[in-house]
């Protein structure tokens, strides 16, 4: 997979603090890239540098194998975290204006906008002032403006903050469509759970430094805790008797008719052997690996250990239900 944006050793120092310290990220073409980190880690600074709003002190950025230049802003769409519109200006006129600043011709912009406005049921609001629109509608307009010029690279900074759940789903669908049409997407957020399911690649930034970067599955795999959870019914032999030294029983929860056990396996032991052992213990109703979430991984990266308490189950249905 080719790389659309290659930022190497980016350093940016403000007067009193270093916002980015030797940060390198490579964003694969047509990927959805999660730029993660707590507030104040330096995400927005990196994004502003990519958008050429501010300059880096050091480092190089290649966009589509060319050094990043001002002409590239026409191929980038940016939805900033701090976003707004001219309140007193008409929605349609304003959208055309912002599209023209991205290099679209007036007629072209009008045509594209009409399509998007119809899709989002915004057409009746074309001639209204922005201040007459609800917040949700304003956010739709902002989204449309960001993607209108069909940019190669789309950057969303905290995209879902302030969006209602219906709009979040709408946006996610549109973003996935845009990716299929050839766009590359950067999500920047401190709320990792909100974008985790969408991202193919992630980079974690903490205190101005890159702490982790890579393919999401790879990262997960590398951070596997080898912790498994099983539910058993009609247990006739206690589970602990079935386990040898390669398996470590972490936790047992006994319910009325069933029990839940969490077992960590050592590196050499394949999960299948654990499964076999459990099968002999009783009626097995569920078995799954407890993988850490990006959030957990991030906290581990920062503090050195996983957060106490539950870990998210990698059950796709549970995840979908949470969104």
């Amino acid at each position: 997979m080719s790389t659309l944006l290659k930022a190497d050793n980016i350093t940016k120092t403000y007067r009193d603090h270093r916002a980015l310290d030797q940060v390198s990220v490579h964003i694969p073409d047509q990927s959805i890239f999660g730029l993660l980190g707590p507030n104040g880690a330096g995400k927005t600074t990196l994004i502003r540098i990519i958008n050429q709003i501010i300059g880096a002190d050091q480092g190089t950025i290649l966009f589509d194998n060319e050094p990043l230049r001002s002409k590239h802003v026409l191929r980038i769409g940016y939805l900033p975290e701090e976003r707004g519109l001219y309140k007193k200006m008409e929605v349609g006129e304003q959208s055309i204006y912002l599209a023209r600043l991205k290099g679209l011709k007036r007629q072209e912009a009008r045509k594209l906008l009409t399509g998007w406005f119809e899709k989002f049921d915004l057409m009746p609001w074309w001639g209204k002032k922005v201040e007459e629109l609800s917040k949700g509608m304003q956010q739709k307009v902002q989204f449309i403006i960001t993607v209108l010029h069909k940019p190669r690279l789309l950057i969303f900074d905290e995209p879902f903050s302030g969006f209602d759940p219906i709009n979040v789903n709408l946006l996610k669908e549109e973003i996935l469509k845009l990716r299929e049409e050839g766009s590359t997407i950067i999500f920047s957020t401190h709320n990792m759970d909100s974008v985790e399911e969408l991202c193919d690649h992630i980079a974690l930034i903490n205190r101005s430094k890159l702490v982790l970067e890579g393919d999401v599955r790879e990262v997960r795999k590398n951070h596997s805790t080898r912790l498994y959870e099983a539910e058993l019914e009609q247990v006739h032999t206690p589970v602990e008797q079935m386990l040898d030294g390669r398996f470590q029983l972490v936790d047992i929860e006994k319910h009325l008719e069933s029990m839940t056990v969490r077992i960590r396996i050592t590196k050499e032991a394949p999960p299948n052997e654990l499964l076999q052992s459990l099968l002999t213990s009783g009626q097995l109703t569920s078995f799954r690996e407890l993988t850490p979430t990006m959030n957990d991984i991030f906290i581990k990266q920062v503090t050195g250990e996983y957060p106490t308490g539950k870990m998210q189950k990698t059950d796709p249905f549970i995840q979908a239900g949470q969104q």
Binding site: I53, S70, Y78, R83, L98
Partner: peptide
């Protein structure tokens, strides 16, 4: 001031130079 307080400025400066 209007551009700054309405936060449209960041959208604009991603297209044009300040």
């Amino acid at each position: 001031l209007e551009e700054k307080t309405s936060r449209i400025v960041e959208i604009i400066v991603s297209s044009v130079k300040p």
